[in-house]
Amino acid sequence: MDWDWGFVAEIMPTLLQGLKLTLIVTLLSAAVAAVLGLGLAIARRSANRYVARPVAFVVEFIRGTPLLVQLYFIFYVLPDAGILLPPLVAGVIGMGLHYATYTAEVYRAGIENVPKGQWEAARATNLTMRQTWVHVVVPQAVPPMIPALANYLIAMFKETPLLSAITVLELMNQAKSVANSSYRYIEPMTLVGAFFLAMSLASVVILRWLERRYGRLGT
């Protein structure tokens, strides 16, 4: 088994193409998870139990089943119900929804960290519920949870190869296809690992910085 630099140069553009899609999918899914997770966390806190209970059930259901199964379901089963989604959209929805149930827990903890007196001060100054969330609770709850949210971002990034199962041409899928057509696995797979490692290490540096910057705001 020998390393072929010529082959590396040959497949590099394809892999970079895949890397680009991996980053796009990660960011889009992260955006979905960030927004949807906040929605889930607020809905679970709702005083109306016809809202809170079903949401809690859905959250437990999604957390209790594997992401890969959910991706198959969205991409291969939903078409039977007439819902046909392009691979990228299905992947972003699947990953975003799955991780939203985890970010919802982070939000929940962050929201519960906001002292009761803040809610009461908002009430005493006659803010509406919406104004209380937007101007008082969320701005205080979010900074301390940024490190935990960033952690999930890195986890999502490393889960993107699952999307190759639903034909998204992300990094892993591109590597697989060049490997399958040339019968050489060492270069593409090594490069995939190296790309992920490089990105993860960079993320860890950013994460440490975020922890220093925001981590102590909650106390």
Partner: peptide
């Protein structure tokens, strides 16, 4: 309640200023 609260203001033992 929102309509009624405009008549009333409150100062708390622990201030409850918005720290941000």
């Amino acid at each position: 309640l929102h309509h009624m609260r405009r008549h009333i203001g409150m100062v708390f033992q622990h201030f409850n200023l918005f720290p941000h």
